[in-house]
Design a protein around this nucleic acid. Structure first.
Lengths: 116, 116, 116, 116
DNA sequence: GTGGTCTAGACCACC
DNA sequence: GTGGTCTAGACCACA
């Protein structure tokens, strides 16, 4: 996997895993590769993979069964979508709005385009 | 100047010049640096700077006086803003709309955010 | 192909291609020789042929399909004829009018000739 | 003087002399340089200059006084203008008309431009 | 294979 | 000095 320089690798890996969950590469309640396997697959340091899994667990997207590994949460997709929705609302939209103001475009202009 | 790898350098340079015109670094009807000066400043090949200037000239943003150099068009800002508006409508918005559909967001959700 | 010294080669090549389109050597929606083929045929540098093609593309006379080559636009002939009409009106006619004034000829004299 | 390759040099020289007469470089009833002087000035072979003078004399534009040289005819300008008018009517205009037909332009279109 | 881009270096006309 | 053009040769993404 290729990573951007601007963003922490463990976050990019976590996002990739989220993407895979949405795409059913990893299905609800099923096991995902172990930290070491994932680290090898993605060619990152094992500690980086650990941080990704911790982050996903903290978000409730995966959970751990001692001795067995990590599993996809039943409602993982819902959580991910909700997260992405918030990301869109809090970051993408404000940036789009800023551009609109700079260009003198109104919300009505955007609505017209949406109809198409 | 630093350039992204994904986009042609001559286009990035042209956009930078547009940005400078909007910011009054280069004012209407005034001369901009010669092709060779700009190329040296930005550390690109002279021919690449030529392509940028040709692109801007073709858009009507700058014009040339023989033996004297390139000058900012009187209505350069209008042209740039119109261009950017079209770019936003034709490229940025469709991408935003695609994300909205993927996340199940409606135009009403966006309107609520806009009010804030 | 032989080129005049007074005019840019890439423009003369572009005009030749226009001529060929009008003569159905290159037909609407069909592929024209690749940049490199054309350059070899006409014995010019490949970059010069590129400039010709870019000029024709910018005029809407040809269009490009990625990895496949350049194709003649459906309405290429219309565009070419319109272009040539403007050229005639803006350049040829003024020069003819200048000669007429120098020789003391009126528009009526020309009309008489036109009738024949 | 520089000569085009496509046209006989003696004709180009004769035209240049006509041009000079119209511009009063050589005035009516005055002597023009001898054949040898002219040949030297224009850097052409003396025989070529002779042919030019013969051509001009045959047209009635210049005349010879034995032992004195060549002189500009009293009505030289009239003859030249008449000649040029015929040249315009017989060669330039037909070529213009041909272009007009090829482009689908009418004499009315030309009249409109003439008014400007 | 295609077009697209970039560099390096050259010559020209114009001012 | 300015822009404008041309050549030579290189690397890239895409199909």
């Amino acid at each position: 996997m290729e990573f951007q320089e601007k963003k922490a690798i463990y976050l990019q890996l976590a996002e990739q895993i989220c993407f895979d969950i949405l795409e059913d590469v990893h299905k609800a309640d099923e096991r995902i590769p172990s930290v070491r396997e994932m680290a090898a697959q993605m060619e990152v340091n094992a500690n980086t993979a650990v941080r990704s899994y911790e982050w996903l667990e903290q978000k409730g997207i995966i959970y751990t069964k001692r001795g067995l590994g990590f599993f996809v949460a039943t409602d993982a997709k819902d959580i991910i979508l909700k997260m992405q929705r918030e990301e869109f609302i809090n970051n993408t939209l404000p940036s789009v709005f800023k551009t609109m103001r700079a260009l003198g475009l109104s919300i009505e202009d955007v609505e017209k385009e949406w109809q198409k």
